[in-house]
Protein backbone atom coordinates (compact mmCIF):
# COMPACT_ATOMS: atom_id res chain seq x y z
CA UNK A 1 0.00 0.00 0.00
CA UNK A 2 1.44 3.33 -1.07
CA UNK A 3 0.13 5.30 1.90
CA UNK A 4 2.09 8.41 0.96
CA UNK A 5 0.25 8.49 -2.36
CA UNK A 6 -3.14 8.13 -0.63
CA UNK A 7 -2.16 10.95 1.69
CA UNK A 8 -0.94 13.12 -1.20
CA UNK A 9 -4.22 12.69 -3.11
CA UNK A 10 -6.32 13.20 0.02
CA UNK A 11 -4.46 16.37 1.05
CA UNK A 12 -4.47 17.72 -2.51
CA UNK A 13 -8.26 17.35 -2.63
CA UNK A 14 -8.69 18.85 0.83
CA UNK A 15 -6.55 21.84 -0.14
CA UNK A 16 -9.06 22.70 -2.84
CA UNK A 17 -11.68 22.65 -0.11
CA UNK A 18 -9.61 24.85 2.23
CA UNK A 19 -8.98 27.35 -0.56
CA UNK A 20 -12.72 27.92 -0.74
CA UNK A 21 -13.43 27.32 2.94
CA UNK A 22 -15.59 30.43 3.23
CA UNK A 23 -17.91 29.34 0.42
CA UNK A 24 -17.89 25.81 1.77
CA UNK A 25 -18.96 27.08 5.15
CA UNK A 26 -21.24 29.98 4.28
CA UNK A 27 -23.41 28.41 1.60
CA UNK A 28 -24.75 25.52 3.74
CA UNK A 29 -25.36 27.93 6.63
CA UNK A 30 -27.37 30.27 4.42
CA UNK A 31 -29.34 27.56 2.64
CA UNK A 32 -30.15 25.79 5.92
CA UNK A 33 -31.30 29.06 7.46
CA UNK A 34 -33.55 29.64 4.45
CA UNK A 35 -35.07 26.18 4.77
CA UNK A 36 -35.83 26.88 8.42
CA UNK A 37 -37.41 30.21 7.67
CA UNK A 38 -39.58 28.72 4.90
CA UNK A 39 -40.37 25.24 6.18
CA UNK A 40 -39.76 25.62 9.88
CA UNK A 41 -41.33 28.96 10.64
CA UNK A 42 -43.75 29.69 7.77
CA UNK A 43 -45.11 26.24 6.99
CA UNK A 44 -44.16 24.57 10.26
CA UNK A 45 -46.33 26.96 12.24
CA UNK A 46 -49.37 25.45 10.51
CA UNK A 47 -48.27 21.86 11.08
CA UNK A 48 -48.24 20.97 14.73
CA UNK A 49 -46.22 17.80 14.98
CA UNK A 50 -45.22 14.88 12.80
CA UNK A 51 -45.07 11.58 14.65
CA UNK A 52 -44.79 13.49 17.90
CA UNK A 53 -41.91 15.66 16.76
CA UNK A 54 -42.21 19.37 16.01
CA UNK A 55 -42.05 19.97 12.25
CA UNK A 56 -38.98 22.18 12.53
CA UNK A 57 -37.04 19.41 14.24
CA UNK A 58 -38.57 16.74 12.00
CA UNK A 59 -36.99 18.15 8.83
CA UNK A 60 -33.46 18.44 10.30
CA UNK A 61 -32.33 14.86 9.47
CA UNK A 62 -33.78 15.17 5.95
CA UNK A 63 -32.04 18.48 5.39
CA UNK A 64 -28.71 17.09 6.51
CA UNK A 65 -29.13 14.01 4.32
CA UNK A 66 -30.13 16.14 1.33
CA UNK A 67 -26.98 18.26 1.55
CA UNK A 68 -24.63 15.45 2.51
CA UNK A 69 -25.76 13.26 -0.41
CA UNK A 70 -25.48 16.07 -2.95
CA UNK A 71 -22.12 17.20 -1.57
CA UNK A 72 -20.62 13.70 -1.50
CA UNK A 73 -21.58 13.13 -5.13
CA UNK A 74 -20.46 16.50 -6.45
CA UNK A 75 -17.17 16.53 -4.52
CA UNK A 76 -16.13 13.05 -5.62
CA UNK A 77 -17.36 13.30 -9.21
CA UNK A 78 -15.71 16.67 -9.72
CA UNK A 79 -12.58 15.51 -7.91
CA UNK A 80 -11.87 12.69 -10.37
CA UNK A 81 -13.41 14.35 -13.44
CA UNK A 82 -11.26 17.48 -13.17
CA UNK A 83 -7.91 15.65 -13.65
CA UNK A 84 -9.46 13.89 -16.63
CA UNK A 85 -10.55 17.26 -18.00
CA UNK A 86 -7.20 19.04 -17.47
CA UNK A 87 -5.20 15.96 -18.49
CA UNK A 88 -3.36 15.69 -15.17
CA UNK A 89 -4.81 12.19 -14.77
CA UNK A 90 -1.75 10.90 -16.69
CA UNK A 91 0.26 11.40 -13.53
CA UNK A 92 -2.07 9.25 -11.45
CA UNK A 93 -1.90 6.51 -14.07
CA UNK A 94 1.89 6.57 -14.34
CA UNK A 95 2.49 6.68 -10.57
CA UNK A 96 3.32 3.54 -8.57
CA UNK A 97 -0.21 3.33 -7.17
CA UNK A 98 -3.18 1.09 -7.76
CA UNK A 99 -6.78 2.03 -8.36
CA UNK A 100 -7.81 1.25 -4.78
CA UNK A 101 -5.37 3.86 -3.45
CA UNK A 102 -6.72 6.42 -5.92
CA UNK A 103 -10.28 5.64 -4.80
CA UNK A 104 -9.43 5.91 -1.10
CA UNK A 105 -7.76 9.28 -1.65
CA UNK A 106 -10.56 10.86 -3.68
CA UNK A 107 -13.55 9.23 -1.96
CA UNK A 108 -12.05 9.81 1.49
CA UNK A 109 -11.58 13.52 0.80
CA UNK A 110 -15.05 13.90 -0.75
CA UNK A 111 -16.68 12.14 2.20
CA UNK A 112 -14.73 14.27 4.69
CA UNK A 113 -15.93 17.49 3.06
CA UNK A 114 -19.53 16.27 2.99
CA UNK A 115 -19.29 15.23 6.64
CA UNK A 116 -18.00 18.67 7.54
CA UNK A 117 -20.92 20.33 5.77
CA UNK A 118 -23.35 17.94 7.47
CA UNK A 119 -21.96 19.05 10.80
CA UNK A 120 -22.25 22.72 9.86
CA UNK A 121 -25.93 22.20 9.01
CA UNK A 122 -26.53 20.37 12.27
CA UNK A 123 -24.88 23.26 14.12
CA UNK A 124 -26.95 25.85 12.25
CA UNK A 125 -30.16 23.89 12.89
CA UNK A 126 -29.49 23.71 16.62
CA UNK A 127 -29.43 27.52 16.65
CA UNK A 128 -33.04 27.57 15.42
CA UNK A 129 -34.47 24.71 17.44
CA UNK A 130 -33.81 22.50 20.44
CA UNK A 131 -32.40 19.24 19.20
CA UNK A 132 -31.83 16.12 21.23
CA UNK A 133 -30.15 13.22 19.51
CA UNK A 134 -31.32 9.94 21.05
CA UNK A 135 -28.74 7.68 19.40
CA UNK A 136 -25.63 9.77 18.64
CA UNK A 137 -23.45 6.78 17.72
CA UNK A 138 -26.01 5.48 15.21
CA UNK A 139 -26.41 9.02 13.88
CA UNK A 140 -22.67 9.34 13.18
CA UNK A 141 -22.56 5.84 11.72
CA UNK A 142 -25.42 6.60 9.31
CA UNK A 143 -23.84 9.89 8.36
CA UNK A 144 -20.38 8.44 7.70
CA UNK A 145 -21.76 5.47 5.74
CA UNK A 146 -23.95 7.77 3.65
CA UNK A 147 -21.01 10.08 2.89
CA UNK A 148 -18.82 7.19 1.82
CA UNK A 149 -21.50 5.41 -0.23
CA UNK A 150 -22.50 8.52 -2.17
CA UNK A 151 -18.89 9.64 -2.60
CA UNK A 152 -18.28 6.25 -4.23
CA UNK A 153 -21.29 6.85 -6.47
CA UNK A 154 -19.91 10.30 -7.29
CA UNK A 155 -16.54 8.78 -8.13
CA UNK A 156 -18.22 6.37 -10.56
CA UNK A 157 -20.11 9.27 -12.16
CA UNK A 158 -16.86 11.23 -12.48
CA UNK A 159 -15.15 8.31 -14.22
CA UNK A 160 -18.15 7.78 -16.49
CA UNK A 161 -18.74 11.42 -17.45
CA UNK A 162 -17.27 12.59 -20.74
CA UNK A 163 -18.24 16.23 -20.27
CA UNK A 164 -19.54 18.67 -17.67
CA UNK A 165 -23.18 18.14 -18.75
CA UNK A 166 -22.98 14.43 -17.97
CA UNK A 167 -21.38 15.28 -14.66
CA UNK A 168 -24.54 17.20 -13.69
CA UNK A 169 -26.98 14.80 -15.31
CA UNK A 170 -27.18 12.00 -12.75
CA UNK A 171 -27.35 14.24 -9.67
CA UNK A 172 -30.03 16.36 -11.36
CA UNK A 173 -32.21 13.68 -12.93
CA UNK A 174 -31.81 10.80 -10.50
CA UNK A 175 -30.46 11.82 -7.14
CA UNK A 176 -32.38 15.04 -6.50
CA UNK A 177 -35.81 13.42 -7.15
CA UNK A 178 -34.88 10.39 -5.03
CA UNK A 179 -33.84 12.60 -2.12
CA UNK A 180 -36.91 14.86 -2.30
CA UNK A 181 -39.27 11.90 -2.68
CA UNK A 182 -37.47 9.97 0.04
CA UNK A 183 -39.28 11.76 2.83
CA UNK A 184 -36.85 14.59 3.55
CA UNK A 185 -39.66 16.95 4.47
CA UNK A 186 -42.56 14.63 5.31
CA UNK A 187 -43.48 11.30 6.79
CA UNK A 188 -44.64 8.71 4.27
CA UNK A 189 -47.78 8.30 6.38
CA UNK A 190 -48.89 11.59 4.86
CA UNK A 191 -48.84 10.07 1.33
CA UNK A 192 -51.65 8.20 -0.46
CA UNK A 193 -51.16 4.38 -0.29
CA UNK A 194 -49.93 4.05 -3.91
CA UNK A 195 -47.12 6.54 -3.32
CA UNK A 196 -46.28 4.88 -0.04
CA UNK A 197 -45.62 1.64 -1.95
CA UNK A 198 -43.56 3.41 -4.59
CA UNK A 199 -41.51 5.13 -1.90
CA UNK A 200 -40.41 1.76 -0.60
CA UNK A 201 -38.41 1.26 -3.82
CA UNK A 202 -36.44 4.43 -3.16
CA UNK A 203 -33.12 3.64 -1.44
CA UNK A 204 -32.79 7.16 -0.06
CA UNK A 205 -36.06 6.71 1.83
CA UNK A 206 -34.39 4.05 4.02
CA UNK A 207 -31.43 6.30 4.70
CA UNK A 208 -33.51 9.24 5.82
CA UNK A 209 -35.80 7.02 7.87
CA UNK A 210 -32.86 5.44 9.70
CA UNK A 211 -31.15 8.76 10.19
CA UNK A 212 -34.35 10.23 11.63
CA UNK A 213 -34.63 7.26 13.97
CA UNK A 214 -31.15 8.08 15.32
CA UNK A 215 -32.40 11.55 16.18
CA UNK A 216 -35.92 10.95 17.50
CA UNK A 217 -36.39 7.21 17.87
CA UNK A 218 -39.25 7.27 15.35
CA UNK A 219 -38.99 5.95 11.80
CA UNK A 220 -41.04 4.96 8.76
CA UNK A 221 -39.37 1.54 8.63
CA UNK A 222 -37.48 -0.52 11.18
CA UNK A 223 -33.92 0.71 11.65
CA UNK A 224 -32.52 -2.71 10.68
CA UNK A 225 -33.92 -2.24 7.16
CA UNK A 226 -32.28 1.15 6.98
CA UNK A 227 -28.89 -0.22 7.94
CA UNK A 228 -29.28 -3.03 5.44
CA UNK A 229 -30.18 -0.56 2.70
CA UNK A 230 -27.09 1.58 3.34
CA UNK A 231 -24.92 -1.54 3.46
CA UNK A 232 -26.36 -2.89 0.18
CA UNK A 233 -25.99 0.45 -1.57
CA UNK A 234 -22.42 0.80 -0.30
CA UNK A 235 -21.57 -2.73 -1.48
CA UNK A 236 -23.05 -2.14 -4.95
CA UNK A 237 -20.97 1.03 -5.39
CA UNK A 238 -17.86 -0.74 -4.11
CA UNK A 239 -18.47 -3.61 -6.54
CA UNK A 240 -18.85 -1.20 -9.46
CA UNK A 241 -15.63 0.56 -8.51
CA UNK A 242 -13.83 -2.78 -8.28
CA UNK A 243 -15.14 -3.67 -11.75
CA UNK A 244 -13.87 -0.34 -13.13
CA UNK A 245 -10.54 -1.10 -11.49
CA UNK A 246 -10.31 -4.50 -13.20
CA UNK A 247 -11.25 -3.33 -16.65
CA UNK A 248 -9.67 0.13 -16.59
CA UNK A 249 -12.95 1.40 -18.05
CA UNK A 250 -12.77 5.02 -19.29
CA UNK A 251 -9.39 5.60 -17.65
CA UNK A 252 -6.77 3.36 -19.22
CA UNK A 253 -6.60 2.37 -22.91
Amino acid sequence: MNLRAVQAIYMNEMQRFFRTILQSFVSPVISTSLYFVVFGAAIGSRIETVEGVSYGAFIVPGLIMLSVIMQSISNASFGIYFPKFTGTVFELLSAPINFLEIVIGFVGAAATKALFIGMVILGTASVFIDLTILHPVAMVLFLVLTCLAFALLGFIIGIWAKNFEQLQLVPLLVVTPLVFLGGSFYSTDMLPPVWQTITHFNPVFYLISGFRWAFFGVADVAVGWSLLAVAVFFTICLGLVARIFQTGWRIRD
Partner: peptide
Protein backbone atom coordinates in the same frame (compact mmCIF):
# COMPACT_ATOMS: atom_id res chain seq x y z
CA UNK B 1 5.61 24.25 -5.43
CA UNK B 2 2.52 22.34 -4.28
CA UNK B 3 2.50 20.62 -7.65
CA UNK B 4 5.99 19.20 -7.10
CA UNK B 5 5.23 18.08 -3.54
CA UNK B 6 2.12 16.31 -4.84
CA UNK B 7 4.06 14.50 -7.56
CA UNK B 8 6.69 13.40 -5.07
CA UNK B 9 3.95 12.16 -2.75
CA UNK B 10 2.09 10.01 -5.25
CA UNK B 11 5.37 8.38 -6.20
CA UNK B 12 5.69 7.30 -2.59
CA UNK B 13 8.56 9.57 -1.58
CA UNK B 14 8.55 11.39 1.77
Amino acid sequence: ETNLHFSRGIFGKP
